[in-house]
Each structure stands twice: as C-alpha cells, then as structure tokens.
Design a binder for these strands. Sequence first.
DNA 1: AGCAATATTGACAGCGCTATCACGCAGTTG
DNA 2: CAACTGCGTGATAGCGCTGTCAATATTGCT
Lengths: 359, 359
Amino acid sequence: MGRKRIKPGKVRLTEVAALAGVSPITVSRFFRNPDTVSAGRRLRIESAAKDLGYVPNLAARALASQRTEVIGVLIPSLTNNVFSDVLRGIYDAFEGSRYSIQLANTRYSVLQEERLLRLFLMQKPAGLIVTGVDQTAEGRAIVQAADCPVVQIMELGTDPIDMMIGFSHVDACSAAISHLLAQGCRRIGFLGARMDPRVQRRLQGYQNAMKEASLFDPRLIVTTAVPTSTTMGGSLFSDLLLKAPDLDAVFCANDDLALGVLFECQRRHIAVPEQIAIVGFNDMEFMASAVPTLTSVRTNRYEMGLRAATMVMDEIEGREVTQRVVDLGFEVIERQSSTLSRAATAGPAPGERASGTKW
Amino acid sequence: MGRKRIKPGKVRLTEVAALAGVSPITVSRFFRNPDTVSAGRRLRIESAAKDLGYVPNLAARALASQRTEVIGVLIPSLTNNVFSDVLRGIYDAFEGSRYSIQLANTRYSVLQEERLLRLFLMQKPAGLIVTGVDQTAEGRAIVQAADCPVVQIMELGTDPIDMMIGFSHVDACSAAISHLLAQGCRRIGFLGARMDPRVQRRLQGYQNAMKEASLFDPRLIVTTAVPTSTTMGGSLFSDLLLKAPDLDAVFCANDDLALGVLFECQRRHIAVPEQIAIVGFNDMEFMASAVPTLTSVRTNRYEMGLRAATMVMDEIEGREVTQRVVDLGFEVIERQSSTLSRAATAGPAPGERASGTKW
DNA sequence: AGCAATATTGACAGCGCTATCACGCAGTTG
DNA sequence: CAACTGCGTGATAGCGCTGTCAATATTGCT
C-alpha cells in the first residue's frame, strides 16, 4: 500500500479552503488570479491563508500546470565584471515579476554548458538566456528541445537559435584600432587574456584593422589562456615590450589588462599617452577615474541584460517580439590615454611615431 | 472528469520502464542510485532512456519525494566584486554535486530579503545561505520555517540562526588602523560608501581604534549612502581633504575607494605614502599591482563561499558539522602605500607627521 | 541440502496542485 | 418566457514521480 498518513501540521490548499469555506480550486485561483474570485471570498481566503501561514508548493504547481516560471541563465564566469553588469540587468528586469532566475556558470566550457543545459531541461524552464553563439550542435539541440523562448546574448551571429542581443566584437575592436590609427599610432599592440570566443573576435577585429592599414605584425600580439587580471595586464605588456620595443600603443582586450598596463607604464616611467597610448575594452567605471583617464570601448552590458530579459518575458507572455536580433552597438570613449594633441593638428603621419625604442 | 489525454510524444519514467522491460520504480532507482540496480537492468535502462531521450521531471520528483536539491543563496549585490568572489566559492563547492543554486539579490534591503526568503520557502529549499546577521525578526522566522540548514556568511555575530562563517569587520578595520598608527600616522581619515551593516562595523572598528589612541576626530570621517566606485573614492577623498587638510592617512572601507584615492592623489601630486598613506579593504587583485602597491585587508571571500556551501551540504547529508561558527579571520597585507620606511627605525612618534597641510 | 541473510525488484497509493468541463445564477435579448 | 451569455464556482481526474512495504531472487554458511 501507499505511504504514511499526512503530517498533521501541514498546510495545503485544502486546509485554507476548508477554513475559508470554499473549494480548493477557488483558493488556487485566488493565488494565481485574484480578480477571478469574488470580493467576499477573496477576503475570507486571504485571512484564512494568513492565519494558517500557507505557503504554495511550487513543485506541485509546476507538476500540475506543466510549466514553471523559471528562467535559466547561462554565463561563462562569475568573476568577470562584464557579466555581473549583464546579470544586474537581467535581475532588474525580472524584479517584481513572477519569474525567478536559475543562474549557472559554464566556466567558458561548451561541454559544461551542455551539461548545464541538460540540467535546465529537467526544470522545464519558461525561458533561457545563454551567452554567446558558440554552442555545440548538441547544445543547440538541447536548447531547442526545451521548447521555450531563448535569447543569446553578448554577441551577434548569423544563425540565432531564437532571439539574440549583442554587438559585434570584431567591429568594436576595429573601431578602437581605427581611433588609435587616427591618433597617429602605428605600432599598436594587442593584449588578450582568457581568449574566449569574444576575445578571439576582438583579436580578429584588430587583425582586420591592422592588415587594412598594412601595419599588421604578429609580434605585436601577446595573449594568454590564463584568466584576465590587472597583474596579467602588466606581465603581458612586459612581454609585448620585449617583442616589440618600438610599440606606440596598446589595445587591451579588456579594461583590467589596460589598468595593469597603465600601472606597468608608471612603474617603468613610460609616459601615457606620449610614449604609449592605451585603449581598453568595456569601459568599466574605473577607466574614467584613472590618471590619465583611460580610453575604452563602451559596451551596453546592463542594457543587454535588461533587454534580453524583457525579450524573454514578452515572448513567454505572447507579446510579439518584432526585433528578434538586436544590435546594441558600442562606442569608443576617447580619453587622455589615447589622445595625442598633435594628432588633431597634424593628423596621422605614417611612421611618424614609430621611431624605435623610447625608454 | 479530468483533463485531456497524455500527449503522445511525452517520455516518462513509465515509457522508459516499458522499453527496458522493468517496472517504473526500478528506473526511478536507476536514476537516483544506479548501484542499487543490477548490472543487466542498468544497461537496458540506460539505453532505453537514451533511445527515448528521457529527461527526468524535477517538479514531479520534488513533489513525490517532498524535498528538493535547491540551495537558496541571498546576497545584497551582484555588482560588488566582494560577492562575486563569495559566489564563485559557492558555485565551485556545488559544482558536480546534485544541488543547484537559486541566487537572489536583496539590494541591501532587509524587506527585499524578507520577500525573497518567502519566495524561497515555496521551493522548499534543501539549504540556505544568507548574507550578514541583520535579518529582521520576520526574516529569521521565515528562515526557521524553511526547516533546512542555514549558513549566515560575511560576518560573525552572537546569535546565529544555525551556522555562520565570516570574520569580524570591527577587528579587521581596527587592525588596519593599528597598522597605520604603527607607521606613525596620526590624522587617519575614514572613507566609506554604501554604508551597509558591514561597512558600519568597519567604521565602528575605526572609531574604536582611533578613540583608544586618543586620536578620534569626527572631521576625519566622510561617508556616503551612494554605492561604492572608484570615482566616488576620489570625491570622498576630496571632501575629506577639505574637512581635514592635515590628513596623513586614509582608510578606505573598500578597495575601489582606495583606487580612487590613489588616482586623486596622482591628480593632485600628493605623494603616496610620504604625504598620505592609503589602506583599502578586501585586497582585490589590482591592489598588488597598483603604483605604489596598495595596502589592504585580505578577507577570505572565496573560501568563505566554499566552506559555507560545504557546511550546508554536510548538514543536509547528515554529516555532523562540529564547527558551526567559523571565524575565517583576515590579514593586513602591508604594501608600499602605507609603509613609511622611517617608522621601522624611529617608530611611531606622536604628532610627528601631523604637521599641517603638506600640499 | 537447508536455512538465514542479503540484494533486487515490484505494487500501490499518494505528494499538492491545476486543467478541464459542468453547472448555477444573474442579467440580456428577441 | 425561453434561449443565451458570462461570470463565479465546484467536482473530478490526473501531472510524473517516489516512499513504503512486501515479494522474490541470490548468496553465504553450516
């Protein structure tokens, strides 16, 4: 036979219904859609629920209704501040809504991502937000099987699973390099850490821009698979100086590296931007406050999270999402670290600043 | 009568059982405890499940078993890097375990915290990790009603709900001030932003230390309710200079502020540490890389998350947790920004450095 | 071989909630 | 006055899984 009897202290919908003198289904309706219950019963149910300290059982609700109000969110890293901004947007958007967020961390691994997607599936999520466009075929299949709205964030791509919001890392980086070229820089280094797909694309943008200007030189590129950090910025920069002593600018694939480069320049008494210009990526808050202030590429991370979440909600709730692929763009914020006053007057003069070692 | 018939494509335990030629309960066991099923059936079930693409239904499992494998985690902020380190520890600890994390953000509001705890209750979490010790009475009651292991993190207190892991913010700050006093600093400022309970306690530690040294002066304290940022560090420091022009050191309630102070000093050509010593709090990665390197109070945030998570798991799984209140301590990491060479030889000399405005 | 101890397996009855359909009752409508 | 509409309500039958306990197969031991 079955299991042991119901625990006496347990408060279920039924208990509330009994106390309020209505049927359980009415109480159920009250909790999901108070308007559909008449005012009199509404009050009785409300007070009964409060008296008994009733708490709805989400598992039972999910099982009976065959759906949940869980949004799965997959990001590659918790440490990377970039994602905390995106997350803040996501959490803000769902704030006060009935949805709750299930966050998981892929650690930049597509296999891990696959595993986590499989886990999400068991929850029958109402929506999914995933990072990037580089899911495995298997991963895409799993997402598709979830049969719910999906938004890919952080990047743009030609083949969205469902919806997509991001910007072009290639173009953003090219724009930063163009800015440096316009300032008269010629020996522009590239520093990258972690080298996840997005950083790879920034590197691609760098290469495109440098090749187009006929200034490409592989010795100008220093990268590492190690995660980014300020200290790493300093080390990579030191390596770069060894490989390319005639450097006149550094593009850093993110702002932590840029800060590390700035510190290393201070340490070596290299004048910024006079001897070396610095440009970062993401425009973290501290960039505007450094001495000199640091140029960076602003990316709309908070807005990305916010809008991704809104797109998911709209889709779930049947509101038509017309713009299913959103390019949020970027902006090169020019600050002291890359602004060479002479550039404004003389304009870029090829070779002008590439005059060998300057320290 | 009931509802419409079962959708044909749906794969349940029953379908897998039928294909494998065993009873549903055996399949259930296979998924939860493969060892309890004989090898032969194990293989048959495994291949049947794979063939059908079976995905367990967590809601049904939770309902039937009356428990979940969800750990609720409540933190005040996603933006504050301090918490991302803690979170990393938590996520790492649960990595590969059967538990999943439900993260929510209280935004430094105890009412919000209460609301979120109530939401967590509906999920019947297997464990709870909450930040700080300042829950409302109502909040504590809700947590208690959850009837699961609870760990309070980030702080220590005399009245733990269940388990607790953290360190004394009062002592940590006092230690930092003592260090500055030992360096001969006398006019030590305090900069704080956000002023959440933990920052308040650091302020308390500052006051204790300064009063004990008979050096307390309210003009040395500048705080704001606004969230912390590097830029804010610069502004607060500027305010402080106006109120106390004879300043010889600044303790910053966190490292972002300290970085802002450093930049502001560079901007004003104030020598660090000769004219003004700087000490931060948390020992973020960039502190060691700044020029000069910045002194800070190291707090073991990653370990805190890791161990909090481990404590919850141990408790859930019936392993006895003997140390239910863990003091993780702290360490003042002395770096260039607060190391006055003369202090080592001459020792602290009262009034020596408090010789009025120096810039 | 005989029997107890152990390892596997299965039948049954829910877990607490909601989808579905049915129904009563006011207010309309022709 | 019958037929119709629509709201508010309720009865019923599961949603897909697992706890419980009984039944059966296997093993070890005398």
